[in-house]
């Protein structure tokens, strides 16, 4: 395990050099929050009105948190990197190293995600406080509970995106699968809480990855209860195991098909 933490540390140090570039890249985050602020202000005639159990501030905080999780993930970059590793044959250099490629990809990418999460997290909190003049009432312990949920959500997300990238073993370009995954997370998981969907769809969404990678942590942030936290932790634990198995399954099946031309 120590070697993976070393990979994480070196990637973290390397990305720290580009913190400013990363921050500039978050301009689109600010734009999205601005758009949703306007949209929800338009939808909520009265900010204290409750729609599906959420007031206007809770809705905007919900979007701020889900967007922090999604923007800090850098999923497109990860998927593209894995696709390129497989397509170009670069993966051959990783296979013969004394580590597992999937774990390498996870810890290597976490080095980027941690920096992005801190930067975009601070930016999101500042935007929320400036625009809404409020902050959800959370104790220190509850904040730690939310952060743990965010960490698990990110690990599950990385494993799922890695699995999508590894599809490149079987078809040339797996990026279109990532577009679909990202839009599914964005539309169903980022913009609205599950309660906004028709009752018939809610149980389906609760069993989907959206519940653990997006809805769970954001719901805990806007309305923390011990019951919710326990439920979300159990769901995240189950998904962690499932995503780990899927990712390794695709990897081992794909490696058997690998055929790299020397050069």
């Amino acid at each position: 395990m120590r070697k993976y933490f070393y990979i994480l540390k070196s990637e973290l140090m390397s990305n720290l050099q580009y913190a400013f570039d990363i921050l500039v890249g978050f301009i689109s985050y600010c734009i999205l929050i601005f758009i949703f602020l306007n949209l929800w202000k338009y939808i909520y005639a009265d900010p204290t009105e409750l729609i599906n159990g959420y007031n206007m501030n809770q809705m905007i905080w919900y979007v701020i948190i889900t967007e922090i999780l999604w923007m800090s993930l850098g999923g497109r970059k990860l998927c593209k990197k894995i696709c390129n590793d497989v397509k170009s044959g670069n993966i051959a250099y990783n296979i013969n190293k004394p580590y597992n490629y999937v774990e390498y990809a996870l810890f290597n990418h976490m080095g980027l995600v941690i920096i992005r999460f801190i930067l975009v997290g601070l930016l999101g909190l500042i935007l929320g406080i400036v625009f809404l003049h409020s902050f959800p009432s959370l104790t220190i312990l509850e904040i730690l509970g939310v952060l743990l949920s965010c960490l698990l959500a990110t690990i599950i997300n990385i494993m799922l995106v890695t699995s999508i990238g590894l599809i490149s073993f079987f078809i040339e370009d797996a990026n279109p699968f990532f577009w679909l995954y990202s839009k599914m997370i964005l539309v169903i998981g980022t913009i609205f809480p599950i309660e906004f969907f028709p009752a018939v769809l809610q149980p389906i969404i609760k069993f989907s990855p959206i519940y653990v990678v997006s809805y769970g942590p954001a719901k805990l942030f806007v309305n923390f209860t011990m019951t919710n936290w326990t439920q979300i932790m159990i769901a995240q634990g189950i998904y962690l195991v499932i995503s780990f198995l899927i990712c390794h399954g695709i990897y081992y099946k794909g490696v058997k098909k690998l055929n790299v031309n020397g050069g």
């Binding site: 040339e172 539309v187 609205f192």
Partner: peptide, 27 residues
């Protein structure tokens, strides 16, 4: 295969956003 999958997936990608507007118009 890549050519056509890129086109089809982009259309599906755009279509996902219809969900967002269906929900907003239900409110």
């Amino acid at each position: 295969v890549t050519f056509f999958s890129n086109i089809i997936f982009m259309m599906l990608n755009n279509a996902c956003f219809i969900v967002q507007w269906i929900i907003l118009y239900s409110l």
